[in-house]
């Protein structure tokens, strides 16, 4: 009789331990899947943001090359904003830097503007904004 009670007790305890272990394993598995799912979602959101950033960056580069001054100016503003965003890579920033640098140094005819030639003091140079008769360029 005592043996049967002990056997039943052991069986019950074993079943309880087994159930507890199964519960713990299942819980751990579910938590791992939830974490993985969240990471996957976060990664996809990050990729989506970067793709959208890339579309805007490309559009800004197109705008900088536009025939319309207002679009060019807005393109430059967007280019700077995007290039200083956390989504921009160093290569993106270098590209924007190169585009703006060329835009500053190259005149309307495509020639490189020499501001201070060798042998001339900066004090003897006056840089003036001059778009000739271009109404678009002279309006603020």
């Amino acid at each position: 009789m005592t043996g049967e009670v002990l056997a039943a007790g052991f069986a019950f305890a074993g079943a309880a331990v087994g159930a507890a272990l199964t519960y713990a394993a299942t819980r751990r598995d579910i938590l791992a899947r939830v974490t993985e799912s969240r990471q996957d979602l976060s990664q996809r959101e990050g990729q989506g943001r970067r793709e959208e950033w890339g579309r805007r960056f490309t559009a800004a580069l197109d705008d900088v090359a536009s025939e319309d001054f207002r679009r060019r100016e807005l393109g430059r503003v967007v280019l700077v904003a995007l290039s200083t965003s956390s989504l921009a890579t160093p290569e993106d920033r270098d590209l924007a830097d190169a585009v703006l640098s060329a835009g500053a140094r190259i005149d309307a005819e495509g020639d490189r503007t020499i501001i201070v030639p060798a042998g001339i003091s900066v004090d003897d140079v006056v840089v003036v904004e001059d778009d000739g008769d271009d109404e678009e360029g002279s309006s603020r």
């Binding site: 001054f69 060019r72 100016e73 430059r76 503003v77 280019l79 700077v80 290039s83 200083t84 920033r93 924007a96 830097d97 703006l100 640098s101 060329a102 835009g103 500053a104 140094r105 190259i106 005149d107 309307a108 503007t113 020499i114 501001i115 030639p117 001339i120 003897d124 140079v125 006056v126 840089v127 003036v128 904004e129 001059d130 778009d131 360029g137 002279s138």
Partner: peptide, 24 residues
């Protein structure tokens, strides 16, 4: 002595300003 006048377009000016902003 006369000054050396360098003419730049408004686009050049705005690009230079944008570059300064980008570089900080």
């Amino acid at each position: 002595m006369s000054k050396r006048i360098v003419r730049v377009t408004r686009d050049q000016v705005q690009s230079a300003k944008a570059l300064i902003e980008l570089r900080g």
